[in-house]
Computed example of a mutant assay.
Amino acid sequence: MPKLTKRTIDATEPQVVEFFIWDESIPGFGVRVMPSGRKSFVVQYRAGRRPRRMSLGPSTVLTCDQARTRC
């Protein structure tokens, strides 16, 4: 997947199940798209052996650049 931009996030349509769009420039950074159409920035990382996922905020409030600086 290419670098996340506002255009790619807005063009993404919701599906029956939630899914993620991952950024290729920052490992673990992406957008979660819910079936309701809600989109939020997330970062996925490991704490020891356990994978963790933290929400950075909704895509309606944060821009891609603001979410990248929060990673």
Rank of each mutant, 00 (worst) to 15 (best):
Arg50Ala: 14
Val17Cys: 01
Lys39Ser: 09
Ala11Asn: 05
Gly57Ser: 03
Glu13Phe: 00
Ser40Gly: 11
Phe19Met: 03
Phe20Asn: 12
Thr12Cys: 09
Thr12Leu: 05
Thr12Tyr: 01
Gly30Val: 06
Val61Phe: 10
Gln66Ser: 14
Gly37Asn: 06
Gly28Pro: 03
Phe29His: 03
Cys71Ser: 13
Asp10Arg: 12
Gly57Leu: 09
Ile21Ala: 01
Pro51Glu: 14
Gln44Pro: 00
Val16Pro: 00
Asp10Pro: 00
Arg70Val: 00
Phe19Gln: 02
Val33Gly: 01
Ala67Met: 08
Pro35Val: 03
Thr63Tyr: 10
Thr63His: 10
Gly37Ala: 13
Cys64Asp: 08
Met54Asn: 13
Met54Leu: 14
Arg70Leu: 15
Trp22Val: 12
Gly28Phe: 03
Phe41Lys: 04
Gly28Val: 04
Gln66Pro: 05
Arg70Met: 15
Gly57His: 09
Phe41Trp: 09
Val61Tyr: 02
Pro27Asn: 13
Gly28Arg: 04
Lys39Val: 11
Arg53Trp: 01
Ser40Asp: 12
Thr8His: 00
Pro58Thr: 05
Cys64Glu: 13
Phe29Cys: 06
Glu18Trp: 05
Gly57Lys: 11
Arg70Thr: 06
Gln44Lys: 12
Thr60Pro: 05
Glu18Phe: 04
Phe20Cys: 02
Asp23Phe: 06
Pro51Cys: 07
Arg50Gln: 13
Glu18Asp: 08
Phe41Glu: 10
Trp22Met: 15
Arg52Pro: 07
Lys3Ala: 10
Asp10Thr: 06
